Amino acid sequence: MSAIPQDGQINNWLKWSAAELSLTLEENTREAEWLLSSLLNCSKSELYFQENELSPTQCELLQDWIRRRINGEPAQYIAGWTEFYGHRFNLNSSVLTPRPETERLVDVAIHSLQEFDKPNVVDIGTGSGCIAISVAAEISSASVLGLDISGGALAIAEENAALNKITNVQFLQTDFLQFTPVEPVYDCLLMNPPYIPINEMDILMTEVRDYEPELALTDHKDGLTFYRHLSNMAKKWVHSGGWLIMEVGLGEHPQNVSACFDINQFTNKELIADFNGDDRILKVNVI
């Protein structure tokens, strides 16, 4: 354990934080910068030009944050926010931390929705609202509805819509597996569902398994429940010519999900790679 700084010099606390985190994290300096800049409400680059010192209260809080991070709690939960698609999103343990690969889903959605003048979009399992809000922010003519079974998640999503001043998005609490619309009014359905098979939960990283909401991680079965349900119910949600755009997992999961849509009510099925070259998005056209 490194010696705790005896003053409030920001550079000393940054070095101490990085040293403490190096015991458990490879990207220790980056994470130390993230946490300290979040504490001071400044950019990472501004850390190195700060003339002010940490107050005794801030020093104590930073020590607590570093301890929590060493124990495995995600930095985004500790700081209470993250950045996604150029927007700030507040977070707590009611929602998943948005992943970089999910930004690819937003990319594909924005491109696919160009063919509609005023697209009507639904986001299943909206969580923090990162997908719904990002799409709504990029396409001002769109009307976006985010659905989630969790009231706690929807409270965060509403907060994030207000934070980002996005008015063309709404949220509704409902169970996707039980709810069916009166008619298929949507041009596009977006979905990043719980897709981790229950038998893989034990091998997840500690910061995922022990801190992120299980409800948003696994369907407690084989990771395909939501996709199978959508393949059966798609025409009740999305009109003919509309799109289904879904995030999928790694390994054999993309092909297993794709097979769920090997029926004659779909066409133009495409698996799309993320920036690591892994197939992470499935795009399907409803006939």
Rank of each mutant, 00 (worst) to 15 (best):
I287L: 14
L250S: 13
S128Q: 00
L177I: 08
P5W: 04
W16Q: 02
L282G: 02
L25T: 01
F179K: 08
P193T: 08
A157F: 01
E26T: 13
L189N: 06
I287D: 06
I78C: 04
L215T: 15
K15Q: 12
V169C: 08
K221L: 12
A132H: 02
A79D: 04
V238T: 11
W237P: 14
V135W: 07
C42F: 00
D64P: 08
K118L: 05
L105T: 02
G72V: 02
W16R: 05
V185R: 14
R104L: 12
Q265Y: 02
E103Q: 12
L145S: 03
R99A: 12
E73F: 04
V208Q: 09
G277V: 07
T225L: 11
R104D: 10
T82R: 12
G249P: 14
D202C: 06
A161E: 00
L204Y: 12
A157S: 06
V248L: 01
Y211E: 07
G152L: 07
Q76K: 03
N168Q: 09
N160I: 00
L154C: 00
V95F: 05
S43T: 15
D64I: 13
G146K: 02
D202I: 10
A155H: 05
L61M: 14
C42Q: 09
E101R: 13
I133S: 02
H111P: 00
C42Y: 00
K283L: 09
E270Q: 14
I10T: 09
P197E: 05
D7F: 01
G8W: 09
P193R: 02
D64A: 15
G125S: 14
L147V: 12
H87T: 00
L35V: 15
V144G: 05
Q255C: 02
E138C: 03
T29M: 10
C260I: 06
V238Y: 08
D7H: 10
L47W: 09
P193Y: 04
R69N: 06
L25F: 08
Y77H: 04
N256V: 01
P181R: 05
P56T: 01
L35G: 07
D262V: 00
F226W: 12
N168P: 13
G277M: 09
L163F: 11
A137D: 02
E207G: 05
H229D: 14
V122L: 09
L163R: 14
F49P: 01
P194S: 00
E247Q: 01
C188T: 09
S22R: 10
S22C: 06
G8A: 04
E73S: 01
K283C: 03
L217V: 12
S2G: 01
Y211L: 04
F171Y: 13
L230E: 12
L113D: 02
